[in-house]
Amino acid sequence: MSRILLVEDDHSIADMMSIYLSEEGYTVNLAADGQEGIKLFNKYHPDVIILDLMLPDTNGIELCKQLRTVSSVPVMIVSAKNEVSERVNALMNGADDYLCKPFSMRELAARTTALLRRSALTQQNHQAAAASEPLVEDTREIVLDMEKRCIFIHKQPIDTTYSEFEIMKNFWLHPGKVFSREELLNKIRGIDSFVTERSVDVHITNLRKKVEAEPKEPKHIKTVWGVGYKFEM
């Protein structure tokens, strides 16, 4: 049974979310502030964290950043703030999803299930990649294993999100081809909750941090100004 850590200071909303998710078969641990959330995280090691943006003792983004230093557990931010800038900021700081209040309990449960499914797939791929060696004959700095859905940097596997791998796969299969933001967006539409062209820029930034030696001066994932991006081996 999957365990959810719910960090929400509004007791009525927290109780409603907790009851519904429990009825869906999840074990829910409830925290009313960030400090208690950290304690329950360390105690129960949840499979998903649902995190309110505005907490009495901290900001949800700051708490998400703190959690990201020690864990890759999926984090869903819930907030009454629905501006694109808020959603992008959450994604840039480690959140996996962003759900705007008010929301339906069915959508909450569906997104939670999707995060768990994605996390399980990522873990399986990483374990499979770690158990096997990439092609030793391939001396390229960056190598993709399509079957295991894993990126190797200098023969070391790295973790990526589903969307990041999809973007990198298209780069890898078509080196030198210039992709517009819209083209890349269409590759991940239906997978990623953040379906805007700005989302592509965020994913590119995160990919560069993972595959480039100098992310601010990339030699592989290049910006083509006014058009989009291209990949060079």
Rank of each mutant, 00 (worst) to 15 (best):
Q123P: 01
M168W: 06
Y20T: 09
Q156I: 12
H126K: 15
L173I: 11
D33V: 08
N170M: 13
K216R: 11
R3Q: 07
E62G: 09
Y44P: 02
K65L: 07
I221M: 05
T112L: 02
V136Y: 09
M1P: 13
A110H: 09
W225G: 12
T161S: 02
L55E: 00
H203C: 08
G228R: 05
F103A: 05
T160N: 08
C100H: 06
D15P: 08
H203Q: 08
P46E: 05
A130N: 12
D10A: 13
N42I: 13
S193D: 14
I221V: 09
T161W: 05
E107P: 05
L185P: 02
T113R: 14
G226L: 04
P46D: 03
V70H: 09
I13S: 12
M92F: 07
T112G: 00
K222N: 09
A32W: 14
A213V: 10
D15V: 11
N42D: 14
E36F: 09
V224H: 05
M1S: 12
S71M: 05
E212M: 08
I188D: 05
L207N: 07
G228L: 06
K222C: 07
K65Q: 11
E133Y: 10
R189K: 15
A32C: 11
I221E: 01
P46Y: 03
V70D: 06
H154K: 06
M168E: 01
T27Y: 10
N89E: 08
D138F: 00
E197G: 09
L99P: 06
T160H: 01
V136A: 12
T196N: 08
L116H: 07
R149G: 04
F152H: 03
T112H: 02
L40W: 01
K187P: 10
L30Q: 15
K209Y: 13
L173F: 11
V211W: 07
E183S: 03
G37A: 06
K148E: 09
M233A: 12
E147G: 10
I151M: 03
L91F: 00
R140H: 12
E23G: 11
P74V: 15
N206R: 15
T113H: 14
D97E: 05
D96K: 06
G25V: 09
S132F: 11
V7N: 02
T112N: 01
G37H: 02
P218N: 03
G94C: 05
K216G: 11
G228H: 06
S22C: 14
T122A: 14
V48H: 02
R198P: 09
